[in-house]
Structures are given as structure tokens and as C-alpha cells.
Amino acid sequence: MKRRGTGVGCMFYGIGNTGLPNPAAAFVEVLPDTSVNVIVGAADIGQGSSTMAAAVAAETLGLAIENIHVTWADTQVAPEGGATSASRQTFITGNAVKNACTQAMGELRRTAAEKLEVPEEDLVFRNREIYSSKDETKRMTYPELMGAMSYRGRLAVGAGYYNPKTTYLNPADMSGVPYEVYSYATCILEVEVDTDTGEVTLLKCVSAHDVGTPINPKMVEGQIEGGTAMGTGFVISEKIDVDPKTLAIKNPTLSKYIIGTNMDMPEIYPIAVSSEGEAGPFGAKGLGEPALIPSIPATMAAIGNALGVTFTKTPIFPADIVKAWKDKQAAENQG
């Protein structure tokens, strides 16, 4: 028999290491032709930290993303990036890039203020132009600015780093400030369960994530979709089997450790939620791990909801489902 069920799962996630310093740094140079070198330590493992660094630099400097070239994760070139973990790179390396850009802009501001004859604090850098927020007719292009920089023998270089504002936690009770900022999420997921075979079909999944400020909407969606794939797999198909004698992993291959294929995916509706804050670069927060988490409890709850049973253990494999359903039938027949 096929039965459907719905589950809700929520989470919050502290960005960066827990109650520990975990700084990251960046170097920036705006070149005479308005192209920019951004150098970060952060390892990009496909999640997009380099793209994030480019976007934060472009936004801060008032240039286009095409102007930015990012070099990353080469220890002889790039400063400390810390680990790509704890969903920290957008928040921490992003802030480091912003700080490095702000430093580089010191000379840019001074030069533009001289040329436009306006106070530095009135200057707006946006879309490859510099203008006064008080009088937008006072404006110059970026190439003009870089020309003025060259004429004066000034360089637009910056080094910046960021260390989240946390405290060490008190060993007695863990009190303190473990993280500077938190990401939040809610996932609602629908499944269909075959009570005869225990097969689970993931139907639909809505997953809303407070990312502060989305840097790149498609990358946000991609993280949520990929996280949902991994989170649902956590519950219904993935498990490491350990040989009880040798304690070796029995299924170290992709044919025996079952991750979902495209045919196993639900229809996913990712939602990026914005929230107001100053801590992250333009308010941005991490998403890598939050993307995964809420679909795990949501899947557990949805399968439970379909059967009218509560599951407290993972994984929930077909055999567990058949067993739970039979036990429930037996209990109902007795009662």
C-alpha cells in the first residue's frame, strides 16, 4: 500500500569554529586598467568561495565581477585562509576580502576626492563609476580614476583579515559567545512510502534558508538542492557498514554505499530568506552545512507521518519501514 506523509525540519547553525579564533585573510590590488587581483587562502571545493570573494570585491570596489581575478589556496601566494569548514568562508573570508578592498580604497578615495573636489565620505563607488552621493553630476569613470592614481604614483593595494567576534567558552558550563552569527532554515518535505516493500519516493521539498544576504541566487539554490540530496540520503539510503571482526568498512564503493541518483530526487523549491545584519560581508552568512541539515529531520518526520509511527533512529531503510508498519498493524489488531 502506498501512503504519503509530510514532515517539518528546522535548524540553526553557528558560522565558524566554536568559541575559538579562526581568522582568514585576503590581499587585493586594483591594477591600472581597472582589473583586480584578489588573493585568498580559502580552498574552494566547488561550493563557490572564490566566486563569493570576487563578488564581494566587485561590490566593495564598485567594479564588475568580470574585472576580478581570484587566486586561491596556494600557500606561497595566499595568506592564511583557515579550513573550508564550518560554513565559514563566506562570512570570514568574505569579510577579509571586504577589509582588504577597503584598505585598497583608501588611496582610491583620496584620489577621487581630489579630482572631483568633494569630501571622501560622500563618494560612492558603483558600476565602474565614482560619484558624489550629494551631487551625482560630480562623477568619474574607474579608468579615469586609475589614470589619476598612476599620475600621482599611488597604488591601490590592500591586505585584510577577519576573525569572528567570539569568546572562548567556559569549560565548566560552555557559557560564552561561541559564534558571531547564525544561519537558520526550515524544510517541509513530502514522501510516498510503499508499506509492502518499504520503498520511499521523495515527492516535494520546500527548503527556506536565512542566508543574510544572497551573494549569488543560483549558487544559493545549488547548495540547497545538493544539501537536500545529501540530507534525504542520510535518512533513506546511506550507511557505512563495519565488519564486526576486522572493523573494516564493508562498503567503501559507490555501488555499495548508496547515494541518490537524479531519479531519486524530490522536486525541490529552494527559498533564500534575507535578514538584517552587519556582521557578515554585506550581511551574508554561511550556507554550506545549513543546506544539508533540515532535510534530515524533515525526511524522518515525513516517513513517520506516512506510517503513523515515530522514528528516533537513523537510517530508516526499507526493512525498517516494513518492520515498523507490520508492528503497527500487529499492535492495532491486538488492541
Binding site: 510503499d194 509492502d196 516493500t197 518499504g198 526499507p318 526493512a319 516494513v322 518492520k323 507490520k326
Partner: peptide, 12 residues
């Protein structure tokens, strides 16, 4: 354990 699932699911 595997027989439990096989004997049930074969019917499905």
C-alpha cells in the same frame, strides 16, 4: 535480518 525483509518485500 535480511530474511525478514526479503520474505516480506517479495510479497510486495
Amino acid at each position: 535480518w535480511s530474511v525478514f525483509y526479503k520474505k516480506e518485500s517479495v510479497q510486495g
